[in-house]
């Protein structure tokens, strides 16, 4: 089966006063229908830039320097990065909906929820009036909201979690084939976060879209995703299915991330953080971008950047030391 979205060799740069910020460097991945891909990484690793790039909502200082994002539906194939005007407007939300991390402010404060649905439907020539309301009420119920309460409300009359769920319902209105969720639970408290995650899992079971889930939270990714891509300094350093990522990671960075997550039963001493901080994206270190923080780095890592290479079907790692990484990292922990 053809993937819904295949991103090929995508690079995105920002023009800053100090120089060019290489936010995304030569990234390729695929998402299939009914599949959820999680992009995980620290803040500033370029995850959000990637999402914004696909729907062409990057700020004007950003530039896509190379690459394609091929989107496929039925027999239609188009490159999302070259769309313009009407075609771009139609691609957004109808084919690819993006739910942003700042749910609190994502809805126009002076329009009722009903009007926000109406606007979206009208812009894409979708249902109107009574039929639209019925469809919207169905979606609102799906995200566990009471349509009676929500439909005529203004955004400020709803809580943060409710607003986020309204936005998710709004995202599903036009039945997009691709849904990008950018840190959908970040600004919310832990109970609301749980609620949203349950909603998302339910939706995944019921509907059949391709999902890109951007998060820095490994546990959320583990819960929702089928495959996990670890992003470091604008590059995917490891990609594998969710079980492999958590049970058999091979990149020292992925291993480090997993070791930094507290578990319910594990001892406090088992937690280790990754030393140092993410590199400056303007002046990237030579060789592997993770080498200054990597306990396994040798001369080769400092000079030559490893490319993502498949080590097993469906598992690719960008590390010179991947064969010995797991065992070596275990040693370093003790």
């Amino acid at each position: 089966m053809q993937p819904t979205l295949s991103v090929q060799n995508l690079s995105i740069e920002y023009q800053a006063r100090r120089g060019r910020v290489q936010a995304i460097r030569n990234v390729s991945f695929e998402v299939h229908r009914g599949e959820a891909l999680a992009l995980i990484g620290e803040s500033g690793s370029g995850k959000t830039t990637l999402g914004l790039g696909i729907v062409q909502l990057l700020p004007s200082t950003a530039k896509i320097t190379q690459g394609k994002a091929l989107y496929r539906r039925d027999t239609l194939t188009l490159d999302a990065l070259t769309l313009q005007g009407k075609a771009l407007r139609e691609f957004r939300w109808k084919e690819c909906a993006m739910v942003f991390q700042s749910a609190l402010n994502a809805l126009n404060p002076v329009l009722r929820i009903a009007d926000q649905f109406g606007d979206t439907a009208k812009a894409h020539g979708y249902l109107q009036g009574r039929a639209l309301q019925e469809r919207a009420e169905q979606l609102l119920r799906m995200v566990r909201l009471d349509p009676e309460r929500v439909w005529k409300s203004f955004p400020h009359e709803l809580s943060g979690g409710m607003r986020q769920r309204v936005l998710i319902a709004l995202g599903l209105l036009l039945e997009p084939q691709l849904l990008i969720l950018d840190e959908p639970t970040t600004a919310l408290d832990i109970l609301t976060q749980r609620n949203i995650m349950d909603v998302l899992k339910e939706l995944r079971a019921k509907l059949d879209f391709a999902l890109i889930f951007i998060s820095h939270d490994l546990s959320l990714a583990a819960e929702l995703a089928d495959r996990v891509a670890t992003v470091y300094a604008g590059k995917i350093v490891e990609i594998a299915d969710v079980a492999t990522t958590f049970q058999d990671p091979h990149h020292p960075y992925t291993i480090g991330l997993i070791n930094a997550v507290p578990t319910l039963r594990g001892a406090k001493e088992d937690l280790t953080s990754i030393p140092g901080s993410p590199p400056d994206l303007i002046e990237l270190p030579p060789g592997c971008k993770f080498h200054p923080r990597c306990p396994l780095a040798d001369y080769r890592c400092r000079e030559q950047e490893p490319e993502l290479e498949p080590i097993k079907p469906g598992h690719a790692v960008a590390c010179w030391q991947w064969r010995s990484a797991r065992a070596a990292m275990e040693k370093f922990r003790s």
Partner: peptide
């Protein structure tokens, strides 16, 4: 504001964003 970016992501026409989203606020 985020709601303007989201409005663009929702594929709303520029005129609608200019009047009801940017202009009004």
């Amino acid at each position: 504001e985020d709601y303007v970016t989201v409005a663009k992501a929702r594929g709303l026409p520029d005129t609608r964003i200019l009047t009801a989203y940017v202009g009004r606020n």
